[in-house]
Nucleic acid binder design. Structure first.
Length: 275
DNA sequence: CTCCAGGCTTTAG
DNA sequence: CTAAAGCATGGA
């Protein structure tokens, strides 16, 4: 099944490479993307982005194609913040994906004090070891392992996957979610959801903000990592020193647009850091 | 060699 | 409440 969408506010490279997702790779004329157990191929053709997938409705929502990103882009230019305007122009076409919540939880537990290329490698190791083998467009791929499967493994297994000291965070959190069920989290939102997430081992302020934003699409969330801390100090001339207060500053400024603005800033501040 | 990466937990003050 | 040590791993 195939469909297309205007590329004016949809840039596949920027959307996939702005650090919100880890399961994508260059394929043919564009990208091969895996979410959960589903795959998709997308590429630019003239002024369109063309999608191919057996799950078109899923990937329409995954790429947030029902949202008006012209409004969000213009909102970024409307703040009295020159650096944000620069970032938005450089990052035009970035969108916030609607990813699988559990995949986001485990992925961002692995992200702490780590770099994106290595995070991607650990996740690929996990998927090829524990996921189910699938195929799309002649390409083999592996589904993201379920919580039940992840909960079966000991921390030594995750150490062998390259997770480093985050090994026990994965086993303990997978077991807790496996016992409690994930549905409990979907009944929460805002501060309550974030606090529930922070009760899991390996999830602190920043990772919880990422999960809330990328896994539950709460765009009032503004994760502050090393790059945003840098932007805050260098480009916003901020005085606060704790990341929690920096996040509060930006969330107060950007409100329900926080997550979108954060992605523009992250992408622009980090530009050129790796491949 | 040191420093850093989408930081968190634990401990000390 | 804030500050700081310790934590695996690999690339620059």
């Amino acid at each position: 099944m195939t469909f297309d969408f205007s590329s004016e506010f949809l840039d596949p490279a920027r959307t996939l490479e702005c650090g919100q997702v880890f399961r994508y790779e260059a394929f043919r004329e564009g990208y091969f993307v895996v979410s959960g157990d589903k795959a998709c191929y997308l590429f630019k053709r003239e002024d369109k982005v063309v999608f191919e997938s057996d799950f078109p409705d899923y990937f329409y929502r995954y790429f947030d194609l029902g949202e008006d990103y012209r409004k969000i882009y213009e909102k970024a230019l409307s703040f009295d913040a020159p650096f944000l305007s620069e970032a938005a122009r450089a990052g035009k076409g970035i969108r916030i994906l609607n990813q699988n919540a559990e995949e986001v939880i485990y992925s961002f537990i692995l992200s702490q004090n780590n770099n994106i290329p290595r995070i991607r490698k650990i996740i690929e190791n996990l998927c090829s070891a524990l996921g189910e083998r699938r195929s799309f467009m002649g390409k083999e791929y592996f589904s993201f392992p379920t919580t039940a499967i992840l909960a079966e493994r000991e921390k030594e297994f995750y150490r062998a996957m390259g997770a480093g000291y985050r090994d026990s965070f994965l086993t303990e959190t997978a077991r807790k979610i496996n016992d409690e069920g994930i549905s409990r989290l979907f009944s929460l939102k805002g501060k309550e959801l974030k606090e529930a997430l922070m009760s899991y081992r390996g999830i602190g302020e920043k990772v919880a903000n990422c999960i809330v934003l990328f896994g539950f699409h709460d765009t009032a969330s503004f994760p502050v990592d090393t790059w945003l801390e840098k932007a805050y100090k260098e480009d916003f001339k901020g005085k606060e020193r704790s990341r929690k207060k920096i996040a509060s500053y930006f969330e107060g400024l950007f409100k329900e647009y926080s997550g979108y603005m954060q992605q523009y800033l992250f992408f622009y501040k980090r530009k050129g850091a790796d491949v």
